[in-house]
Amino acid sequence: MSAIMLGGCKKFLDVNTDPNNPTDVQESLLLAPIELNISDNITSGFAQLATQTFLQNIAPNQANPGIYNYQMFNVDMNGDWTTFYVTVLNNLKILNQKAESEAHWNYAGIAKILTAYTLGTATDLWGDIPYSKAFDKTNFLVAYDSQEEIYKTIQSLLNSGIADIAKGDAVKPGGDDYFYKGNMASSDKSRLFAEGALLHSPHESTRSHRCSAGG
């Protein structure tokens, strides 16, 4: 009887496990919000709107001083930096780790392709960016990779993403994959899209890198 009581008490006092904030979830619960954020904040988002403003594709009729009058400060891009690194890339890293450890190769492949796409967009905006030394909880002064390094990383992420998908794993995303509804042939196409975007990037370094790599 006392053993049961003790057991009960031990469980009751377990305040370190918060059922509302799980520390580990299945891939399908990560992929949906990540894709939402890629759509909202990477493909769209402030940086892309700013680009459209500078290209004079959009303009408000009257605006207080700021981006719409071509007045920009470094800090104005802080929000985008957060969505790229904190909201999207860090969660993609977790998704990839989880999928690889569970051998859910379709999820792992999608995570790598989406990471490549996000990195490609980031390097278009900022040039040299952190990646190889990033996402380390113990290092707050993160070293940057050169844009050339980033493009090599993107290429290798795409290659291993394709290799993951080619393993033909039976576990496929469904409705949690807003982009392709789990159609892995289409995910392959997104790789081609990402590669195409790379190839047509305005940056000279990219094109020369692609040419030298025989692409």
């Binding site: 957060t82 690194y85 890339l89 960016i129 990033a134 707050f140 993160v142």
Partner: peptide, 9 residues
């Protein structure tokens, strides 16, 4: 605030 490249704001 810490470097967002750590994955955290």
């Amino acid at each position: 605030l810490i470097s967002n490249a750590t994955g955290y704001t």
